[in-house]
Structure formats: structure tokens, C-alpha cells
Amino acid sequence: MIRYSLKCSNAHEFDSWFQSAAAYDSLRAAGHVSCAICGAPDVEKLLMAPAVRPARHAATPQPATPLSQPKTEVEQAIAALRAQVEANSEYVGLNFAAEARKMHDGLSQERAIYGEARPEEAKKLIEDGVPVAPLPFLPKRKAN
């Protein structure tokens, strides 16, 4: 595993773990790396110094480095929106399009949901009159 410090085209800095340097390169080339704060797809690696501890301190646990906190009013507003959505909605993951369609067609109980959809799925929902809207953030994902 390798941790990279990343920066998006909107100047948001964050860290992320990857299986290897090659895994990062292939994920980025496939468009699967985006900003953890705003979702921008243009992300680049920052220069990093390796975290090397002298042997005498190897047994001393080091504190975890938190992801960057929202700095601007816009970032704070997006963070507040994320908290509101996560507290009052059900995350349905990659089943978002199917769940939204079931609710629209009356086949499932209406409730507040959020999740992920491919662009063509989202476009089809909108064309079919299903009331959906994009969120200005990506869902939190569990890391291994």
C-alpha cells in the first residue's frame, strides 16, 4: 500500500491510499481518481517526503494525519450539506438509479436516498422525469 498526497484543480489537498504506484496510475487513467472534497476529476500527486522513523522510535505509535478540513465558506457549506444528506438519507450505493426508478414507479416506498450512478443512468432518469439532482461531493468510501 502507498499513500499519496493529492491536489485537485480547485486547490483542495487530501491524502489517499492505493495498492501500488501502478494502481494509482491505472485508476487515474481510467478516470476513477477524483477530489475527496469537491469531486473534481483533475487530480495530481504532490511531492512527498517518505515517512521514515528511526529504529529507536519504531515502537512509538505516530498520530494519524487527518484529511484537510474545509477552509473556505464554500467548502464549509458543502461539508454541512454532506452532513445533512448523510444524517437524513439512506445511502444506496451503486443501486441509486434502480432505487430511484422503483420509487418513481411506485414499486418501492418513497424515502430520501443518495448514491452513485453512471452518467448515462443519471441522464436516463432525468429524461424519464425521475426527480434527481447531483450532489457536490462524493460519498465516503470505506478504506481497507
Results as ranks from 00 to 15, higher is better:
residue 48 M to G: 13
residue 48 M to D: 11
residue 49 A to K: 10
residue 49 A to H: 11
residue 49 A to W: 08
residue 50 P to I: 10
residue 51 A to S: 10
residue 51 A to K: 10
residue 52 V to K: 11
residue 53 R to G: 09
residue 54 P to F: 13
residue 54 P to L: 13
residue 55 A to S: 11
residue 55 A to F: 07
residue 56 R to K: 07
residue 57 H to V: 13
residue 57 H to P: 02
residue 58 A to C: 07
residue 58 A to G: 13
residue 59 A to Q: 10
residue 61 P to F: 11
residue 61 P to I: 10
residue 63 P to M: 15
residue 63 P to D: 14
residue 64 A to M: 15
residue 64 A to G: 15
residue 64 A to D: 15
residue 65 T to R: 12
residue 65 T to W: 12
residue 66 P to V: 11
residue 66 P to I: 11
residue 66 P to N: 10
residue 67 L to R: 12
residue 67 L to Q: 15
residue 67 L to M: 14
residue 68 S to E: 11
residue 69 Q to R: 07
residue 70 P to L: 00
residue 70 P to M: 02
residue 70 P to H: 06
residue 71 K to F: 08
residue 71 K to H: 10
residue 72 T to K: 06
residue 72 T to M: 11
residue 72 T to C: 13
residue 74 V to N: 09
residue 75 E to N: 07
residue 76 Q to V: 05
residue 76 Q to P: 02
residue 77 A to C: 03
residue 77 A to M: 03
residue 78 I to N: 04
residue 79 A to G: 07
residue 79 A to I: 05
residue 80 A to F: 01
residue 81 L to N: 06
residue 81 L to I: 04
residue 82 R to N: 05
residue 82 R to E: 08
residue 82 R to V: 04
residue 82 R to P: 02
residue 83 A to W: 04
residue 83 A to G: 03
residue 84 Q to V: 01
residue 85 V to I: 14
residue 85 V to A: 05
residue 85 V to N: 04
residue 86 E to I: 05
residue 88 N to E: 08
residue 88 N to K: 07
residue 88 N to P: 08
residue 88 N to R: 06
residue 89 S to D: 02
residue 91 Y to T: 00
residue 92 V to D: 01
residue 92 V to I: 03
residue 92 V to P: 01
residue 94 L to N: 05
residue 94 L to D: 06
residue 94 L to H: 03
residue 94 L to M: 05
residue 95 N to E: 06
residue 95 N to W: 05
residue 96 F to V: 02
residue 98 A to W: 00
residue 98 A to P: 00
residue 98 A to Q: 03
residue 98 A to I: 01
residue 99 E to V: 07
residue 100 A to N: 01
residue 100 A to C: 05
residue 100 A to I: 04
residue 102 K to H: 00
residue 102 K to G: 00
residue 103 M to W: 02
